[in-house]
């Protein structure tokens, strides 16, 4: 399991993101992805995308997330900075 604290800025596949909540990433067969794209965010740097852990539940979510500039990744793609 990976834990990322709230407001931590980190990289996922080279994109800078910020956790909007404490993130706990359990192991699961589908992998995971990171997203909190649609919640209110006041973080000032617009080049940092607000994210949170979201489990992949189906193709629909997968589709939406891939197409909205959010990177689908798993734990090996995360780089804390």
């Amino acid at each position: 399991m990976i834990r990322i604290n709230k407001n931590q800025v980190f990289l996922v596949k080279g994109t800078k993101v910020m956790s909007t909540d404490n993130i706990y990433i359990p192991e699961n067969e589908q992998g995971y992805f990171i997203l909190n794209f649609w919640e209110q965010c006041s973080y000032s740097d617009i080049n940092v995308l607000p994210v949170a852990f979201v489990r992949c539940e189906g193709e629909k979510e997968l589709y939406n997330i891939r197409k909205t500039n959010i990177i689908l990744g798993d734990e090996k793609d995360i780089c804390l900075i």
Partner: peptide, 29 residues
């Protein structure tokens, strides 16, 4: 989904970017 499908079909992924629901200082910036 309609918007995303259009962006994908038109190959505009690199030119249309989503920044989330910006409020406060993020909205200003």
């Amino acid at each position: 989904e309609k918007i995303l499908a259009y962006i994908e079909g038109a190959g505009m992924q690199d030119r249309v970017k989503f920044y989330g629901w910006c409020v406060g200082e993020r909205k200003e910036n």
